[in-house]
Design a protein around this nucleic acid. Structure first.
Lengths: 183, 183
DNA sequence: CTAGGTATTGGGACCTGGTAATAAATTTGT
DNA sequence: ACAAATTTATTACCAGGTCCCAATACCTAG
């Protein structure tokens, strides 16, 4: 690779780190045909921590997400739960939940919050979603807090009709009716 | 903490590492009131790698997942796409998508695949989900491959009715009708 | 021409969280 | 009481850094 000037090199560096944080200074030094120290100085200026720190951050970030998303088997954070009656959860819209171009929260996150909340309401080991009707009433934006409330509307043996209403502040953003089946 | 015997200590260690991989040998040594070397021997016997290696594994694992789940803005892998006409994607059910007790794929993943696929079909910068009707026809299990096909059914100015059918093999597992709005 | 600023490089001391190996001390089972 | 199992200590070494200091090259303005 040709020797680049400082600003160009730093731009590429920033891009590379975003793409793949698992590169050592030494590898980068070779790639750019500069000394390791130069890379270190670049990192300083760009405020990019060392490899191990970067790795740790990625790991922690996602470890937490995986826990809250799949570990708990609940999307969002449970606020309140009365088994078989009602439940509520809150979900804060983070950058990874929004579509890049519109900055609007993707519908599947809103659905997931509602769906997992509905499932949490049911006092059974195994709960399947049978069918659902959804209405997304207005877009939800970055950093907004979605509070979902689920109520049991009807129950027939092992089938549950659950209504979920999600609001941002006082505004309704989503309504869903779920039929869940317990096994 | 009381001194435990070897087997008990190792059991607890294994549990701790699963729960939180970001602990150094030294911290653990203190917690169990044994020497650092003892912890190292335990790790050896349990075949647990050192802190940095553990961190790296978690990071890499999730780095990939985040990319495929949110980076692409598509859940599943796109197989085919004719803008404005039809599209299909495949999603392999991995352990993190199934509910622990039932080993059944959670409905929100199936929905996400369908919803993002429907959105991909539309040739517009900003696409919002307006409403949807879903039917989950049978549970989907670990390692099954869900192939979703989306068709544009009707279009009215900026509103699109899209039908998505998801199958495992020849079996229909999910059907959804989505009304999407382009902005 | 020369002094000063910017960019790059090299080297040394030190840090963390380990591995590997070897030996010594302690505990335990019988 | 004695061997085996377990634990601890000690030392040397490594990767991938940090922090700091000094040397060099190059460009530019006075």
């Amino acid at each position: 690779m040709k020797r680049l000037d400082k600003t160009e090199r730093q731009q590429q560096l920033a891009r590379l780190f975003a793409e793949n944080p698992f590169t050592t200074d030494e590898e980068l030094a070779k790639k750019f045909s500069v000394s390791v120290q130069t890379i270190r100085l670049d990192r300083m200026e760009l405020n990019i921590p060392e490899l191990r720190e970067r790795t740790k951050r990625v790991a922690k970030q996602v470890f937490n997400k995986v826990r809250s998303m799949t570990g708990n088997e609940l999307v969002g954070e449970l606020l309140e739960l009365e088994l078989g009656l009602s439940a509520s959860s809150i979900l804060v819209v983070t950058p990874d939940m929004v579509a890049e171009k519109s900055q609007v929260c993707r519908g599947d996150y809103i659905f997931s919050q509602a769906n997992t909340l509905a499932a949490a309401l049911i006092d059974a080991e195994i709960v399947l979603t049978g069918s659902a009707r959804l209405r997304f009433r207005r877009p939800v934006y970055l950093n907004e807090k979605i509070v979902a409330k689920a109520f049991l509307a009807r129950k027939k043996i092992n089938k549950y009709l659950i209504k979920v209403v999600s609001k941002v502040g006082a505004e309704e953003v989503f309504v869903g009716k779920f039929i869940l089946v317990a096994r």
